[in-house]
Design a protein around this nucleic acid. Structure first.
Lengths: 111, 111
DNA sequence: TATTTAAGTATCCTTTTGTATACAAGTATC
DNA sequence: GATACTTGTATACAAAAGGATACTTAAATA
């Protein structure tokens, strides 16, 4: 019973993580911004096959979940600049283990 | 250019990982089996809110991707036993970082 | 003046995921 | 004999995610 509750709490934690960074695009977008791309089209061009609509939606989701910020720079013309939050940096550990696992998996499939 | 290619390879690795273990249920299912649940209904009961149809589909996906095995035990009555593969154990590192991040995120939200 | 750039939005469509319910085939139980 | 349990599959449907394409608005550039 104790064990069961702990297991279900574990599951809930993982599902919470998946909610925030799950799906095909969220981690790539975060990494793109982290690696220096601040603007919509830069991010878009750095990620193969992503469409405007999906990028737009995912940026909003990430902003709602405090992973990135969207700043309107009042220059002429107005620019929009995205940045990762300090909090978002904690996701790097997840991204790294996933990257490593993915590379390994690819090798495994090639054999 | 070099950098861009490396970045895109990184993205691809993460997307490969997401393909195998992404979504709300796959890691919970793997952990459930890993923690001792071998049979369909045991797995089902250990994961809140999952339905038969989804569990059935996800088990097939995980089997196709070499994460679990499905063994028909020729007893009376016939039983089906699921098990994680040795290869699947490597996913633990991803699951652990995700669990940790999720717990932390929950705390963060409660503040 | 015509084209390009920027940062999206609008519309429509397809695919995936999730829900609900019923059914099957054999065994076990009342 | 009737009912319940096991391990799913089948069917129908709803909702969410992802994709293709066109369009907007205003400034910058050729």
């Amino acid at each position: 019973m104790e064990d069961k509750n702990r297991f279900q709490e574990k599951i809930a934690a993982i599902q919470d993580t998946m909610y925030v960074i799950g799906g095909k695009w969220k981690i790539p977008i975060v990494l793109s911004i982290y690696s220096g791309n601040k603007r919509f089209n830069d991010i878009s061009n750095s990620i193969p096959k992503i469409t405007n609509r999906v990028l737009s939606k995912e940026l909003k989701h990430l902003e709602d979940n405090l992973m990135i910020t969207r700043k309107v720079v009042d220059d002429y013309p107005v620019r929009i600049e995205y940045a990762v939050t300090e909090y978002c940096l904690s996701i790097q550990s997840v991204a790294n283990t996933m990257e490593e696992w993915g590379r390994n998996h690819k090798k495994r499939l090639q054999k």
